[in-house]
């Protein structure tokens, strides 16, 4: 029973991880609290869904979603840099504008994809002929799980897609442009004095960030079989939760480590959420409350642990001095 729940959470988590990577780019790399995410996630889903319904091949439809997200993010960047509007407000304005735009794109407040082709259905078709599912299911049932997943194709393909995007992101952040982008979030005055156009970098950075968010939205729509205007509500908090949980659990020593941590954070968040909802008195409407509690825990726990370690260290030192030894290396 537990296996299939965790499996499902992992599956969704790794799709949401792309959104979390986007949030990491804006929130951490650019130091820009970008609320566009709540809107651009739906934009991704809406563009992909309406394209598929109109006969566009799913892969191309997903690419359209990516581009739409890039445009949405760029506009937030333009509002902030050229319009000199405060970052938070630029994001909020774009988010609220996207709400109407998303309904325009879909023509109504939701689009169903149940009888349409999706990336995942296409892969599943090909995957089924390989017979890998049986092998993996046999392995898992040998470990004692009884309720087995219908297909492994989604998990496997998403692991590949997410890792490819992670490595591309890592590489990009080490290029000359990438370094300048990071410096824009770190010390804008400094990088401008080294001839970097920080306005353009902010616009591009937010564009890429929201492109990833929209990509995630497009994949979630195809995974769930529908797009709904409300599917983006609170998305920024979920993204932040993933970033914060990931950083707390897996560390931030290097860029490559941090992007992996963010992906891990997105998966852990889903699993914790699913397990929490298994508690009897919690209902699915409590999801947002649970999210808030998870984020608070992820923010506070590391501080408590550090404070604990410090006090233990100091106690040891004092004890050592009291015994009259170690005075030299005190």
């Amino acid at each position: 029973m537990w296996f299939i729940s965790v499996f499902g959470a992992f599956e969704a988590g790794i799709i949401y991880a792309l959104m979390a990577l986007g949030v990491y780019l804006s929130f951490r790399i650019l130091d820009f609290p970008d609320l566009t995410v709540d809107g651009s996630f739906v934009t991704g889903g809406a563009v992909a869904a309406i394209s598929i319904v109109n006969g566009v091949p799913p892969v191309l439809a997903t690419f359209y979603a990516f581009v739409a997200g890039f445009i949405a993010g760029s506009i937030t960047g333009i509002l902030n840099t050229k319009g000199k509007i405060n970052p938070l407000l630029s994001g909020i304005l774009m988010m609220i504008a996207l709400y109407s735009i998303n309904i325009r794109i879909m023509g109504k407040s939701n689009v169903a994809l149940l009888n349409e082709p999706t990336i995942f259905k296409q892969i599943e078709g090909f995957w089924g002929s390989l017979g890998i599912d049986t092998v993996l299911n046999n392995m898992v049932s040998a470990l004692g799980a009884d309720n087995l997943p219908g297909t492994w194709s989604v998990v496997i393909i998403m692991i590949i897609i997410t890792l490819v995007i992670k490595f591309l992101t890592d590489y990009f952040l080490k290029t000359e442009v990438g370094l300048a982008l990071r410096a824009t979030g770190d010390n804008e005055k400094m990088i401008r004095s080294f001839s970097a156009n920080t306005d353009i970098l902010t616009i591009i950075g937010l564009g890429i960030s929201n492109a990833l968010v929209a990509l995630s939205g497009a994949l979630i729509a195809q995974y769930g079989g529908f797009t709904d205007i409300g599917m983006g509500i609170g998305m920024i908090v979920i993204g932040l939760a993933s970033v914060i949980i990931g950083e707390a659990l897996f560390g931030t020593k290097t860029i490559a480590r941090t992007t992996l941590a963010v992906i891990g954070g997105a998966i852990v968040y889903r699993i914790v959420l699913v397990l929490a909802l298994k508690v009897d008195f919690l209902e699915s409407s409590d999801t947002k409350l649970i999210t808030a509690v998870i984020v608070i825990a992820a923010l506070i726990t590391p501080k408590i642990i550090t404070a604990r370690k410090e006090s233990v260290r100091k106690k040891k030192k004092r004890a050592m001095l009291a015994r009259g030894e170690g005075a030299n290396n005190a």
Partner: peptide, 27 residues
């Protein structure tokens, strides 16, 4: 004059690009 969360070599790489066009090559 420096970016604190970035390494010494990364800071130097940014300074190195001051009078050049920034590309998608490793810094």
């Amino acid at each position: 004059g420096t970016a604190p969360t970035m390494t010494i070599e990364e800071n130097l790489a940014m300074a190195y690009a001051r009078n050049k066009k920034r590309t998608l090559k490793i810094g």
